[in-house]
Every structure is written in structure tokens, then in C-alpha cells.
Amino acid sequence: MNNQIQPGDSRQRILARIAASLGRDPAIAAASAAYAVLPRHYRATAATPPAQSISRFLDRLHEYNAACVRVASEAGIAAAIAAVLAARSQSGLAVVSGIPPAWLPPGFNFPLANPLTAEELDRQPGILTACAVAIAETGSLVLQSGPRQGLRLHTLVPDHHLCIVFESQLVATVPEAFPRLDPNLPTTFISGPSATADIEMTRIKGVHGPRSLHVLLVAD
């Protein structure tokens, strides 16, 4: 059975073997009908009061060693960013396109990240983005490529990520996040700073991704 394989043959061979193993012709019509009735008895939505989601989200971030600052309104973002940068003695942050200028405090450098190469990003002290949705249960930020959220490498190469989350973007559970996402965009779930437990199961913050993660949770 195992003669020399010609390129292109493999596709037909694999599909034929699958069909033979399953013992039927490809039942394309049946797949969607069967899919529609699969049991899904887990929580699709939770009637979680917003205050409870917020406190859970803050707990999770704290566990991940990610810092979180609460901001009373969008007007307070600039001052909050200035405070974070001052505390870190940081001269500024790269910003992704679409970040409103009103968010940026005076007296710091905010170069635009989009034209920068990976090597140039590597020399930036940090990156500022917003997100698509945040999940309280898992302390996750979800970013999708585009305005305010940048490209995937923007939140990866710099050593510090500062992320703006509006309270209206916070959902309680993982299934609640999905309807808010565009399945066609490159998507990254970020849950805490990069980490590893490969050495004796000790969770160590910071391997290749940003070693510091800051969240500004903004009331809206």
C-alpha cells in the first residue's frame, strides 16, 4: 500500500481513507444539522452584576502579577498614564494608530508604533493599546488587529504593555466574549505577563513577551 507518493495524491488518499473508515459517502448536508443540536449546557451568559465582574477581574490580574489602576472617566486616562510612566521612570511609550490624542499626557514621548520595524519596537520602552473585550473569570484581555489595538507584534516585542479597558468592555465569562469578537481578525488573548512554569513548575513572570502588564480600567 505504501508506494512512492506523488504530490497531490495525498489529498485524495487521505480523503478516501477517511470516507472509507467512516463507512459512508461524505455527508455534507448532515454535518450542519447534527452540529446545530450538539449539547451545550454550560453558562453562555451569566447574570453577573458589573461590580462583581470588576472585583473578580481585579483579583485575577493581581494573581497574574499584572498591575491595574481604576480610572473614573475617559477624561482621567492621560493623568493615569502619566502616573504609571512616572512611577516606572519611563520616558514614554509607543502608541498604536487610532489612540485618541486626548489620552496622551504632555511631557512624554509617544511615537507611533505602526511604521516601526520589529528591531525598532524592541528598543521602545513599552506600548499603549486598547482592547476588544476583557474577561473577568479568566483575567483576560482580548485584542484584535486594527485601530486602537495595533498589530500582533506591537503587544509582543516591547517589554511593557499598558492596556486601556473600558468597564463596558468587561464580560463575566469566556462564552460571553465570543459574540463581541470578529472571527476574521487576528486575535490574541492576553492573560497576565508572559510566563513559564517549565522549570520545576514555578510560575515565572516574563520570558519572551512583555514582562510588565498594566491595565487601566476606565469607568464609562
Binding site: 488587529s145 469566556v174 490574541t188 492573560s191
Partner: peptide, 19 residues
């Protein structure tokens, strides 16, 4: 044993200008 691992990446094909 984590509620969520630090990173999940999802993409399709070669999105313009990203990756």
C-alpha cells in the same frame, strides 16, 4: 491548572500587514 494560559493566538491565512 490555570484559568487561562498567558497567550492564545488565532488567525487565518495571511492577514494584510500583520504577520
Amino acid at each position: 491548572g490555570e484559568r487561562m494560559n498567558p497567550y492564545n493566538s488565532i488567525w487565518s491565512g495571511t492577514p494584510a500587514g500583520d504577520g
